[in-house]
């Protein structure tokens, strides 16, 4: 029984309540940095780390948090983990840190993290909070990777991961740069959502 609930909590974040496609929170960062697959990987890992750690800590100390000042406490917990990510990226991956820039400190106000702390971890056991954090993080990362994949492949004609080209479209294809630029993010996301809507509508019909 324990195992199934853990799996259920994980799956819930990943599919049923996918933070980006279904709940539509935390959109800003996902659109801004998804112009490269590599950015998506780093941002996904950073956010998942913050989400999991803050979920665990908040679930662990929830009995001692006074109700009236819970939001500032959540924010302090989240801000400490964001600082860890900020300094770690700056020290070990300076080029990535340059590209992600202000988005790392902005994880503090990323709605996903605070929403999970307030809406879930504050009332859950440590184990479920861990599963929830992992699931939500995985859901976020997954959408980010799909967007990064589409935008980088269509926009530059190839995929580059850690300085290695892993996929290339044949030369007659002339990559439209719009996909790696700003409007491309909106277009890609709109099309993904429309596809999802269509899929859902089909399912209801059946």
């Amino acid at each position: 029984m324990e195992e199934t609930t853990f799996w259920y909590e994980f799956k819930k974040g990943f599919i049923i309540e996918n933070p980006l496609m279904v709940l539509m929170v935390g959109l800003c960062s996902s659109l801004a940095i998804s112009n490269r697959l590599e950015n998506g990987i780093f941002m996904g890992i950073s956010l998942t780390f913050v989400l999991v750690m803050s979920n665990i800590i908040i679930a662990a100390i929830r009995r001692w948090i006074p109700d009236q000042i819970r939001i500032p406490i959540f924010i302090i917990v989240i801000a400490s983990f964001v600082t860890i990510v900020d300094l770690a990226l700056k020290a070990y991956f300076p080029p990535v840190y340059d590209r992600l820039g202000v988005w790392i400190p902005l994880i503090v106000v990323n709605c996903i993290v605070l929403a999970r702390a307030e809406g879930y971890a504050y009332k859950a056991t440590v184990k479920n909070a861990l599963a929830d954090g992992l699931g939500m993080g995985a859901g976020y990362t997954c959408v980010l990777l799909i967007m990064g994949f589409i935008r980088e492949l269509l926009g530059t004609g190839k995929l580059v991961l850690f300085d290695v080209t892993i996929l290339k479209i044949a030369p007659p294809y002339n990559p439209p740069a719009i996909f790696i630029l700003f409007p491309g993010a909106f277009l890609t996301f709109a099309c993904l959502m429309a596809l999802l809507n269509r899929y859902k509508a089909r399912k209801v019909e059946q």
């Binding site: 277009l187 709109a190 959502m193 509508a201």
Partner: peptide
Amino acid sequence: HSFKGAPIAFIIAALLSL
């Protein structure tokens, strides 16, 4: 039908951004 609501808003955002 599939574009109603948020998706069409994103398309508009794309055009404005352009």
